[in-house]
């Protein structure tokens, strides 16, 4: 440990010494009034190249066609990509749409978002309430629920794929209990159930943590007063805990909505969007259209991502409004 910290210190020192002279020169060149920009510059250059510029470029891609990546080689097609995506006789039936997979992905995403976020909030709340109690080994149990949050999505998916496979642990357990085994990831309905389950398993701990922080921010004298008045446990929960936790709940709701709309990694590895397109979500469609399939339809992918961005923008503005009102309130 001392060796490591000495090494870090030496590198830190060396970095400082080698950079001081040139940066002092820059400081004298630009003057004290503009020295802040010297510090901002590296970050802003990266932001510009990989965030701001792409936002603008995205619109150029969405309005041009062909499979060329260079914008100069792409013919202008106007709103053609959007028209292709939105060409549908009946929006509730993906089979009547020109891009039927896009609409299937939208349907799946909507279903996924509602189920995943709804169930995750219920389970996170129950878990947070229990972990907030006075129980032995509380610290350990908190760690237990948080651990999967740190695992990579690929690892999460592979862990569950191994448990759920045809001759896996779950099926062995079911047969042991006298039930029949199921080919979980081949059946469309079960696959959908499992992508909801696995994403909740992997991300729940994060929301439990935020809810716990919210629960602990509720002053204890409120509870003591209620206890003095002889309020029942349910009454305390409905009249004190829930109302005082609402702002935290809204933050959790919005954060989990934003993430659910963009769900991809675990599902891609676990089911590959299948069977068929049963678990293909919107980001999967974008990846498939723009990068995996040949020819690469960049325009269609960009148009789809702009539609997704619109949804996310609304959700994020909601989040900002909520956090602001919470900070002020």
């Amino acid at each position: 440990m001392t060796f490591a910290s000495t090494a870090v210190r030496t590198v830190y020192q060396a970095a400082f010494n080698s950079l001081e002279r040139p940066l002092l020169f820059v400081q004298n060149l630009v003057g004290m009034r503009r020295v802040a920009w010297m510090f901002l510059l590296p970050n802003l250059v990266i932001f510009g190249a990989f965030t701001f510029l792409p936002i603008i470029l995205n619109y150029f891609y969405a309005t041009t066609g062909s499979d060329a990546i260079l914008l100069s080689q792409r013919p202008y097609v106007g709103a053609e990509n959007f028209r292709t995506l939105l060409a549908c006789k009946d929006y509730l039936d993906p089979n009547t749409c020109q891009q039927d997979i896009f609409w299937r992905a939208i349907h799946n995403t909507a279903k996924f978002v509602v189920l995943q976020v709804g169930l995750m909030i219920v389970f996170s709340l129950v878990t947070a309430l229990i972990l907030n109690r006075d129980i032995v080994l509380r610290g350990f149990f908190r760690g237990v629920f948080f651990y999967p949050v740190l695992l990579s999505p690929v690892v999460v998916a592979l862990i569950w794929k191994w448990v759920l496979q045809r001759y896996g642990l779950l099926n062995a357990g079911l047969e042991e209990a006298g039930l029949s085994s199921v080919n979980w990831l081949v059946d469309a309905n079960w696959s959908f159930f499992w992508i909801v389950f696995v994403t909740i398993w992997a991300h729940m701990g994060f929301y439990v943590l935020i809810l716990l922080a919210g629960l602990q921010a509720i002053p204890s004298d409120v509870y003591e007063a209620a206890e003095m008045d002889g309020a029942s446990k349910w009454r305390v929960f409905y009249r004190i805990t829930l109302p005082l936790l609402t702002p935290t709940m809204v933050v959790v709701l919005v954060l989990s909505l934003i993430r659910a709309v963009q769900a991809f990694d675990e599902i891609f590895v676990l089911t590959g969007g299948g069977p068929g397109t049963a678990t293909t979500l919107i980001l999967h469609y974008i990846y498939e259209t723009g990068f995996a399939a040949r020819p690469r339809l960049f325009g269609l992918a960009a148009a789809a991502s702009i539609l997704m961005a619109a949804v996310l923008m609304v959700l994020t503005l909601l989040q900002l409004a909520v956090t602001r009102s919470r900070a002020e309130g």
Binding site: A36, L40, N43, L44, F47, A49, F50, T51, F52, L53, P54, I55, I56, L57, N58, F60, Y61, I69, L70, L71, I258, Q262, F264, L283, I286, Y287, G290, F291, F298, A301, A302, S305, I306, M308, A309, L312, M313, T316, L317
Partner: peptide, 26 residues
């Protein structure tokens, strides 16, 4: 200063997943 700060915070709204195609171009 405020403008730069807001600009940086605003990018929280634009996760990289939205700009996959143009970031790939860059």
């Amino acid at each position: 200063r405020t403008a730069v700060f807001l600009l940086i915070i605003a990018t929280l709204m634009i996760p990289p997943t939205i700009n996959l195609v143009p970031i790939f171009l860059v």
